[in-house]
Design a protein around this nucleic acid. Structure first.
Length: 569
RNA sequence: CGGGAUGUAGCGCAGUUUGGCUAGCGCGCUUGCCUUGGGAGCAAGAGGCCGGGGGUUCAAAUCCCUCCAUCCCGACCA
């Protein structure tokens, strides 16, 4: 391919709409253009990258026994009503009607379709297990599409569904996908971690998210710093380790103190001269069923995902000032568990604090020397708080480290949720009808492309890992008017192509600086420069994008050395 | 959905406060000359429903109403 034939419109300035680096660079380097919020056209350079990622995915899925198919994007409402998700999925589901006023959804995911397929085509244990996947556009009407390709409304996703006879089979399929995903992201040249994640109030037991570590990530992950310990979890999931309370403290006399205008933990701590560790923070939450009081230590934060799981509720929200007053009788900042007439959920840690400070459910008043059991009863004790960096690893006890991550993949054990809802049963050897046991496994392809940029860039532009670069080498003649240079450039280009290396010849009649800037911006791993400097010599000048290093390679070793270099990038 | 901001040429912006000459600048684009190892220079050009609609006015990019779009923060996210 020659640059004069390639549609790769680079921009000198950063479009005002782009905030995160991957979005800026994808626009500037001519990979994507926005059509409307969260919807993009992928230009030829992006398409080449996506094809490579897809190819890697296909190879790894197929290696594990996956079979590719293609399902419809337009899905009938009836199927979604059958699974119950027509209502549950909410406004995020794009809906449309046909000319007969029949309702449809644009597929945000394909559990319904694939389960419907399996229920009609699979009827015997002999047909199981099955691993079926597709790579296709997905549609989710995000409330707030943002960050370019990191959160779009239309995006490309690989989704695989596993069908097994039982949970043991599911475990095997799950492990296969765990391995496949590890290989996919490794081959894409990404620094990532599989992390334990929360599976939600309903649904399967296990789930892992594959996180690309990057500061722009929306997810917070905690992982163990100890070499060899592979504990890593989404902050929503990370379990707290109970450090032995250790205070064999005797409960002292409960008493009330006046604390005018002292609301926050910091204020209480300073005013009463107690550490936040001795304060029990009481927060009121409303679920679809009830109001609950949640107790956590003063220096901790409530983890709403864990809380929802502990309560077995679907929706959860922090109560407003009105509810707080009607439940506690006091303004916000003075709630406490003593004599409070709602369900009380205490965090594991908070439940052990003796002689604590709490709100008194009375304006401008706190209680001191509050002790659980004696002064109030707890309905549920559970891990309902956020774990913070520095806390012990649940597996080995070493300190946890916090990092931001971009979720590029998730593997999930569904169990029989969809097979039962949609009626996908098979007959076992004894002729008994059983639900197919399912798993689902997604990779955000377009998000992976953006994540790769988030992780691999510098002030000059993108630095593609060689495996997914749009072209592996760009050949730049300094002056296309110099016949000798052009002839040399053509020769190098042809040799690289013949050697199976994806080369691009920058034959534009531009000045060298312009071509260099574009090459850096687009991020080809290697650049071969053909100019007066090296023309007469027996060496070819090769520059490594990642390091800026310039190598003089003997002409007759060119193909081999470039192949070697690419292998290391 | 709550809060904030912005819509003027392909991109980045000025002009709007205080209505008034033919709507500007930089980059990019076209043509020519010149130049050619990190976004050169000179010259001549093309390119605008000033987001849409309605209103006020002798006169609207500018004031008013309304709709739309885009971005940011938050909430939300199988």
């Amino acid at each position: 391919m020659r640059t004069t034939e390639l549609l790769a419109p680079t921009l000198r300035e950063i479009p005002a709409e782009a905030e995160v680096i991957s979005h800026q660079l994808l626009l500037r380097a001519g990979f994507i253009r926005r059509e409307t919020a969260g919807v993009y056209t992928y230009l030829p350079l992006a398409m080449r990258v996506l094809k490579k990622i897809n190819q890697i995915i296909r190879e790894e899925m197929d290696r594990q026994g996956g079979q590719e198919l293609l399902m419809p994007i337009i899905q009938p409402a009836e199927l979604w009503q059958e699974s119950g998700r027509w209502d549950v999925y909410g406004p995020e589901l794009f809906r449309l009607k046909d000319r007969h006023n029949r309702e449809f959804a644009l597929g945000p995911t394909h559990e319904e379709i694939i389960t419907a397929l399996v229920r009609s085509e699979v009827s015997s244990y002999k047909q199981l297990p099955l691993l079926l996947y597709q790579i296709q556009n997905k549609y989710r009407d995000e409330r707030r599409p943002r960050f370019g390709l990191l959160r779009g409304r239309e995006f490309i996703m690989k989704d695989l569904y596993s069908f097994d006879r039982d949970y043991e089979g599911l475990q095997i399929s799950y492990q296969k996908m765990h391995e496949a995903y590890t290989q996919v992201f490794r081959r894409c040249g990404l620094r990532f971690r599989p992390v334990e994640a929360d599976s939600g109030a309903i649904g399967g037991s296990d789930t892992h998210e594959f996180m690309v570590l990057a500061d722009s990530g929306e997810a917070v992950v905690l992982f163990c710093r100890k070499e060899g310990c592979d504990y890593a979890a989404n902050v929503e999931k990370a379990a707290q380790v109970i450090v032995a309370a250790g205070h064999g403290e005797e409960p002292k006399l409960l008493s009330e103190v006046s604390t005018p205008g002292v609301h926050t933990v910091e204020e209480v701590s300073a005013f009463l001269n107690v550490t936040p560790q001795k304060i029990i923070k009481t927060l009121l939450y409303e679920t679809e069923k009830e109001v609950v009081a949640v107790l956590v230590r003063g220096d901790r934060e409530v983890n709403e995902v864990k809380l929802a799981n502990a309560l077995g509720c679907l929706h959860l929200k922090l109560s407003g000032a009105d509810t707080v007053r009607s439940v506690t009788g006091a303004q916000v900042g003075f709630a406490g568990p003593v004599k409070l007439n709602v369900k009380i959920v205490a965090d594991l840690e908070a439940a052990t604090i003796v002689n604590a400070v709490t709100g008194a459910n009375k304006d401008d008043t706190h209680l001191i020397n509050v002790s659980p059991a004696r002064d109030f009863s707890i309905d549920i004790v559970a891990d309902v708080r956020m774990v913070q960096a520095g806390e012990p690893c649940p597996r080995c006890g070493e300190a946890l480290i916090e990092a931001k991550g971009i979720e590029v993949g998730q593997i999930f054990k569904l169990g029989d949720k969809y097979s039962k809802a949609l009626g996908a049963f098979y007959l076992d050897e004894s002729g008994q009808s059983r639900p197919v046991i399912m798993g689902c496994y997604g990779i955000g392809v377009t998000r992976t492309m953006a994540a790769a940029i988030e992780q691999n860039n510098d002030k000059d532009g993108i630095i593609w890992p060689a495996a997914i670069a749009p072209f592996q080498v760009v050949v730049v003649p300094i002056s296309v008017k110099e016949e000798q240079q052009m002839a040399a450039a053509e020769d190098v280009y042809n040799r690289l192509i013949a050697a199976g290396i994806e080369a691009l010849l920058d034959d534009r009649p531009e000045r060298a600086g312009v071509k260099f800037k574009d090459a850096d911006l687009i991020g080809y791993p290697l650049r071969v420069t053909i100019g007066a400097k090296s023309l007469g010599s027996k060496q070819v000048e090769v520059r490594v994008r990642k390091t800026g290093e310039v190598l003089m390679i003997p002409n007759d070793e060119l193909e081999n050395r470039i192949g070697e270099l690419l292998g290391g990038l």
